[in-house]
Simulated assay, not measured.
Amino acid sequence: MEHQEKAPEGNLSKLMEFVLLDFADVPHLQGFLFGLFSLIYIIILMGNGIIFLITKLDPGLQTPIYFFLGNFSLLEICYVSVTLPRMLTSLWTQRKTVFLVACATQMCFILILGATECFLLALMAYDCYTAFCSPLHYPLVMNYKVYFQLVAGSCISGIPVQTGQTGQIFSLPFCGSNLINYFFCDVPHILKLACGDAFLNEMLVFTVAALFVLVPFLLILVSYGKIISTFFKLPSATGRGKAVSTCSSHVMVVVVFFRLGLVTYLRPKTQGSAGTNKVFSLFYRIVMPVFNPMIYSLRNKDVMMALRQWPCKYLSSLKN
């Protein structure tokens, strides 16, 4: 399937639309991909939705780490819902065009939710650090009021910065082709379509990325550095086993999240690697939210116990 939609001479912003090619290079797989991604979306909604519900309803999971986990699952649902429904609509209707305002809105939500996810992972690492390095002060440091404020701050902090960055990017003049060889409106691909020198915008993107990605990542490294140091000082194997059980799931998610993010956005965007970049991005944006609930439930005894007991508790509450 070849698209002949080209922007006429002049400024593309007058046309107010882009063309997202997504899977246009495999037209014979459109139906299969629609079914596959529909199934993935349902699994994401169910898996993360169940984790969110049990962390809010189960009395045994009313601790800060599970409060963060529940909000992380809700964030995953929102994150995927910004991109996947539009992709499914494109596969079903074969309509690839997206209005400039819709494209800017999608990018803005992606940036805000991505920044929130980075900060939330950092908060979960800090919670692990506080629990194992300062257990006596933990009830005072981490209470409902504190971690509610921390989560709210993580959600709100990125809104003004990422909204301003999106506005600055889409205030650029666009010219030439309006084709985006990607699944959604992302910063690097939009900047490629801008006319003139976008150096200042690229530097702004780099600065914001350093603020919202590098800073949380460094906080995570510092937290786990302290945890590892304390881990080897624990006198009993039981204490070490509890530490591994509680933090291992978070470590797995952090490693996969940041590693795939770095590969996706720092990998050289050469012409020959365009298909590979799309595969990495697809895995990073869509497949990861499928595995996160499995990682947290299979590696955590408390979550597994709550999952086994929750249907019985729910049915008994209905009878009463």
Rank of each mutant, 00 (worst) to 15 (best):
H137C: 12
R299M: 15
S249E: 02
Y224R: 15
P268G: 10
Y144D: 09
V254G: 02
C247H: 06
S223Y: 06
C195V: 14
F132N: 10
F283Y: 12
A152D: 06
L88F: 09
F68A: 03
V80G: 05
F280A: 08
V146I: 13
V303W: 00
N277D: 13
G261I: 00
V187E: 00
N277R: 09
T55K: 05
V146S: 12
P289M: 11
S157L: 15
L21K: 04
Y314K: 13
I159Q: 00
V303F: 00
V215Y: 08
V263A: 07
A243R: 04
I180G: 01
S90Q: 12
S236G: 07
C312G: 08
V161E: 02
Q106R: 07
M107S: 01
L150W: 13
R308F: 06
V82P: 10
N48Q: 10
L84Q: 04
T105N: 01
K278P: 07
L69G: 04
Q4C: 13
G164D: 05
Q165D: 01
A104K: 00
E2G: 06
A24P: 01
T276C: 11
R240T: 05
L88Q: 03
G225F: 08
S73C: 10
T264G: 04
L219E: 03
K301F: 06
S157G: 07
F23Y: 06
P135N: 07
K301H: 12
S81G: 09
Q309E: 14
T163L: 02
N201H: 05
G60C: 06
R259A: 15
N181C: 11
G225Q: 13
T166C: 00
M107E: 00
L29R: 15
R285T: 13
G167W: 00
L211Q: 03
I227K: 04
T130D: 05
M305C: 07
S171Q: 08
G275M: 14
K192F: 08
L204V: 06
Y79W: 13
Y126K: 15
P85S: 10
F34Y: 09
W92A: 14
V26P: 00
T89E: 09
G31H: 10
L100N: 01
S316N: 10
T93R: 05
L61I: 09
S273N: 10
D197S: 14
L29F: 08
A24V: 07
R299Q: 10
D302A: 11
M142D: 03
Y265P: 04
L179E: 07
L84H: 03
A122D: 01
V101W: 02
Y147T: 03
A104M: 03
V80L: 04
L53V: 12
T207Y: 10
T246W: 06
G153T: 12
A122P: 03
L123F: 15
Y138W: 05
L39S: 11
I77R: 02
C175Q: 08
G49C: 05
K6Y: 13
T270G: 13
D22N: 09
F231W: 15
G239I: 03
